[in-house]
């Protein structure tokens, strides 16, 4: 009965090595997996699709570089979609690090893929505001006390896109890409529930489960993690085949996902097998925890 024991107490570094391999190998071999949108993602897509061209959209990048691998694909898909539909997008962030994320979109994606879109007319960067949830509250109560200029200091009145924006409710929809607090939850609590502006967006796979209870009453739709992003990308490509050749980050990154998920499932099964084989051996020695996951 020593084999099960050695499997049970396997060196963590062997697992680390396996995970590293499970991520790197698919990245090199690039297998493709097709996806189709679930209703909760489709609902966001349909909303963006249904809004009349020229609708004012508020897009808050509530994340930093650390969660960018998950949320950047959503940001790109949403920007591509809203721009294609001709909406006017205001970028914003409640994370100090979010400023850099907005820059990635306004400095590289937009000039490259939508050269005809002009700053100040089709999109604007309202920058970062501190104050967490309180900032949303202030914006809803009195938008212009907190936001009176764009990130570069140009007064809102001097930009055609924001000249008529006096209140938060001048936006028809609020989109947030959420990595934590503040994020969609705060947008729902302070803007959606209070000012009645529809709220939707995406969250890392970590925050997504916590946001499910708000759907569909307080939250229009939700992209959960890379899978949600890849679903949105597939909806976008289905509707606008022109994007077929655009780099779809989420779809590409699903390869490592699939392999690692399978690896983890196999590891868990192996661990349990070893546990049950070795249990008779240890039955007399170990206590049983009442809480799941308590170490013997």
């Amino acid at each position: 009965m020593r084999i099960p024991d050695s499997i049970l107490h396997i060196d963590r570094r062997i697992i680390f090595l396996l995970i590293g391999a499970a991520v790197c190998i698919p990245l090199i071999l690039k297998p493709r997996f097709q996806d189709s949108p679930t209703p909760i993602v489709q609902s966001i897509f349909d909303t963006v699709e249904r809004l009349p061209p020229g609708s004012r959209v508020f897009l808050s990048f509530d994340y930093g570089p650390d969660t960018a691998p998950e949320l950047d694909p959503m940001a790109k898909a949403l920007v591509r979609h809203t721009m294609t539909r001709g909406h006017e997008v205001s970028f914003f962030t409640l994370f100090p690090e979010g400023v850099g994320q907005i820059k990635k979109i306004t400095d590289s994606l937009l000039p490259l893929e939508f050269p005809e879109k002009a700053y100040g007319r089709d999109f604007v960067n309202l920058g970062y505001k501190a104050g967490l949830g309180g900032a949303i509250n202030t914006m809803v109560v009195n938008f212009r006390t907190l936001v009176n200029a764009d990130a570069e200091g140009t007064p809102l009145d001097a930009l055609p896109i924001t000249a008529d924006v006096d209140e938060m409710v001048d936006y028809v929809i609020i989109l947030s890409l959420t990595a934590g607090d503040p994020g969609l939850k705060e947008w729902i609590q302070f803007a959606g529930d209070i000012a009645g502006i529809p709220v939707m967006g995406g969250g890392t796979a970590v925050v997504a489960p916590e946001l499910y209870p708000y759907y569909p009453q307080q939250l229009v739709g939700l992209m959960g993690g890379l899978k949600g992003a890849s679903e949105y990308e597939s909806a976008l490509v289905d509707r606008y085949p022109a994007f077929r050749n655009a780099p779809m980050d989420a779809t590409m990154r699903m390869g490592p996902q699939v392999v690692t998920h399978v690896l983890i499932v196999l590891l868990v099964l192996l661990g349990n097998l070893a546990y049950f084989l070795g249990r008779a051996d240890r039955a007399g020695r170990t206590g049983q925890g009442t809480q799941a996951g308590r170490r013997p």
Partner: peptide, 19 residues
């Protein structure tokens, strides 16, 4: 459920770094 759901998020981060 939340744990299983989150594994995905963690892997995507590593994917980003490996890229």
């Amino acid at each position: 459920a939340a744990f299983g759901y989150t594994v995905m998020a963690r892997i995507s981060l590593l994917t980003g770094r490996m890229e």
